[in-house]
Amino acid sequence: MSWLRIAFGTLLLTTNTLLHVPPLLLVALVKAIAPLRPIAPLRAIRRGCDSLLMGIAANWIGINTTLIRWFTRTRFTVDIDARLRPDGHYLVLANHQTWVDIPVLQAALNRRVPLLRFFLKSQLFWVPLLGLAWWALDFPFMKRYSRQQLEQRPELAGRDIAATRRACAKFMHIPVAVMNFVEGTRFTAAKHAHQASPFAHLLKPKAGGVAFVLDAMGGALHSILDVTIVYPDGRPSMLDLFANRVREVRVNIRERPIPAELLGGNYQNDPAFRERMQAWLNELWGEKDRLIAELRAA
């Protein structure tokens, strides 16, 4: 019966996407046509388009979450130690284990905070329907370069930074929750061993992305949402979720102030600031590692 459950659930999620993406693209087109000029009627049109886009996206995510709850017996245990605002400006930091993390984050935070915006690989723009939807919702698309490419052409390193700044400039004047999977990749035992990670349940955190967002948006951000996701029965796949093989998901959300000493620094060119940023993130990751152990043992 699991294959039937998977097929039917996938059909419903696909149908939900097909119903929401066309109006999303239509509103995005109207927003793109309206010139970005300091004229009150044009500003009102763009603000109205932003509100419509967020409403369509929130409804799309809400129906997806409802379908998951209807077609699975997965228990979502969410512990929130934060004052969440749907009109806030947040930097959201989370551990990353599986693609299931994304619907879990959406289920925990949809309509409680602004729409989560992920930094996406540029290749994902070409995903049918979803790529255009992410573009319409101002998800930043980043082009990743290998170490060899950067060694041959060092100027490429600045392009990601410039893209981050452009994305954050869009977010300065609208409610936003900028999402960052700080480990940079999904956790596996092989990656953990290869890194010789000092954390029992996490990969090493990467400070660069956090530093660039704080530099570009620090004054506009209200706080940091520190999200910890635990699957007591092990890391599931999306097929496991649809096949009703995920018994429980535990999510802990803590609001943290943004340390003043991490604002206004130059991560690229200031080694002392870079060390300070990495030390703060390592300390945060140490707390998260201990929390994961507690949530697994609970």
Rank of each mutant, 00 (worst) to 15 (best):
L11W: 14
L18Y: 08
L19A: 07
P22D: 14
R37I: 07
A40V: 15
R43Q: 15
R46S: 08
R47C: 11
C49V: 08
I56D: 03
A57D: 04
A57R: 04
N59E: 10
W60Q: 03
W60V: 03
N64H: 03
T66S: 15
R69E: 09
R73K: 12
R75H: 10
R75E: 11
A82I: 10
R85N: 15
R85T: 12
P86S: 12
L91T: 00
V92M: 13
H96F: 12
H96Q: 14
T98G: 05
T98Y: 00
D101F: 00
A107L: 03
A107F: 00
L109A: 03
L109V: 00
V113P: 02
L116T: 04
F118S: 08
L120I: 11
L120M: 14
S122H: 15
L124Y: 05
L124C: 09
L130I: 15
D138Q: 14
Y145C: 05
S146K: 10
S146D: 12
E151G: 11
P154D: 14
P154L: 14
C168G: 07
K170W: 07
M172I: 15
I174D: 14
V176Q: 09
V182P: 00
G184V: 08
T185Y: 09
T185W: 09
K191V: 04
K191W: 04
H194G: 13
P198A: 10
V210C: 05
A211M: 03
F212R: 03
L214A: 02
L214I: 03
A216E: 00
H222T: 10
H222C: 10
T228F: 02
I229W: 00
P232C: 04
G234S: 05
P236G: 09
S237T: 12
L239V: 09
L241V: 03
A243E: 00
A243D: 01
R245N: 05
V246W: 01
R247K: 13
V249Y: 00
I253H: 03
A260W: 15
A260E: 15
G264K: 02
Y267Q: 08
Y267W: 13
P271D: 02
P271L: 01
F273Q: 00
R276C: 02
W280N: 11
N282F: 04
E283L: 13
E287D: 13
L291V: 14
A293W: 10
E294G: 15
L295P: 06
L295C: 12
R296N: 15
A298V: 00
A298T: 04
